[in-house]
């Protein structure tokens, strides 16, 4: 199976990278056991595993995908095209990075509301309800973490009034 070829090769390459990276580590003076031994052993193991995975060994032991179907409900809609799927799966990651890069300037209340709004809309919530959720969830979570737990959430453009 091609998926196994790819994941096997990637696993092996990570192993090689570990061995190469470990070989550049300084030795401990007067000791033959240094910081490189553990990564080297792991790297060798990964190369071996990668080879076996690429060869398809152990494939037969894998569980078949458990498909959870609802017996009485209507059939699920067909999945969207692959690029759309990739974009949809990447959205949560993008939103987390959005948080990291804008929190200092925009502040928690705005960033949090944007994340909740975008996620809810992307998962098919009605716009009005998604907006309402964003307006409630953002201050509520700010209150729990900033006021009760004293986590320093950045105020940014819109400091919380409490």
């Amino acid at each position: 199976m091609t998926s196994d070829r790819i994941s096997g090769v990637v696993t092996g390459l990570i192993g090689v990278a570990l061995i190469v990276g470990a070989s550049g580590l300084p030795a401990m003076p007067g000791q033959q056991i240094g910081p490189s031994i553990f990564p080297t052993v792991i790297g060798a193991g990964l190369v071996l595993c990668g080879f076996l995975i690429a060869m398809g060994v152990g494939r037969s032991l894998e569980d078949e995908e458990v498909i959870v179907t609802e017996g009485d409900g209507p059939a699920p809609p067909p999945p969207p095209a692959l690029p759309v799927q990739v974009l949809r799966a990447a959205l949560p990651i993008a939103l987390l990075l959005f948080y990291v890069f804008t929190i200092k300037t925009l502040g928690f209340l705005i960033v949090a509301a944007v994340i909740v709004l975008v996620m809810a809309l992307a998962l098919g919530a009605r716009p009005g309800r998604a907006a309402l959720l964003a307006l409630v969830a953002s201050p509520l979570i700010h209150f729990i973490f900033a006021s009760l737990l004293r986590v320093p959430l950045a105020p940014g453009l819109l400091p919380a009034p409490w």
Binding site: L96, M119, A125, A137, S138, I141, L149, V151
Partner: peptide
């Protein structure tokens, strides 16, 4: 409760929670 609401709040909690573990 629609999954859209739950997952949206969970993602926000992921961000705040991991931040809070070490500021």
């Amino acid at each position: 409760v629609p999954r859209a609401y739950i997952m949206a709040v969970v993602l926000l909690l992921c961000a705040v929670g991991t931040f809070a573990s070490g500021n």
